[in-house]
């Protein structure tokens, strides 16, 4: 049976077209979706992730970054250092969030 060339070409492409498309794990907005699920539906088989690249962005410490460190301060129990608002100041807070002292940065 004669099969036209263009038909053979299309038939050759068919398995490619029918292959399942890779599912991407898009993260299009904050908290992923309008329901704010924080959950992406894509698939992967990630086992041992390593940084692809890194760069220093500069800038200043922002309140949202909320770095916390435990520091022994005399009799105080596990104070937490955290930038307060405005973010030109770091405050040392107890675990119950009462302030012990602060300093400008």
């Amino acid at each position: 049976m004669h099969v036209p060339t263009h038909t053979r070409f299309l038939l050759a492409l068919l398995p490619v077209v029918l292959l399942p498309l890779p599912v991407r794990s898009d993260w299009p907005m904050a908290r992923q979706d309008g329901r704010r699920s924080g959950a992406a539906q894509g698939t992967s088989d990630l086992k041992s992730p390593v940084p692809d690249w890194r760069t220093y962005l500069g800038g200043s410490l922002q309140p949202q970054q909320l770095p916390s460190i435990s520091t022994p301060m005399g009799a105080l129990r596990s104070p937490i250092a955290r930038p307060s608002i405005p973010c030109s100041r770091i405050a040392w807070l107890r675990v119950d969030h009462s302030s012990t002292c602060s300093t400008r940065i």
């Binding site: 794990s25 924080g38 992406a40 992967s44 086992k47 460190i69």
Partner: peptide
């Protein structure tokens, strides 16, 4: 071990090929 501050969480339904989130 240093106790850092954890960030907000993100879930991936199938990230590691193990069949669970």
């Amino acid at each position: 071990a240093y106790l850092g501050q954890l960030t907000s969480a993100a879930v991936h339904q199938e990230l590691t090929g193990t069949g669970h989130p």
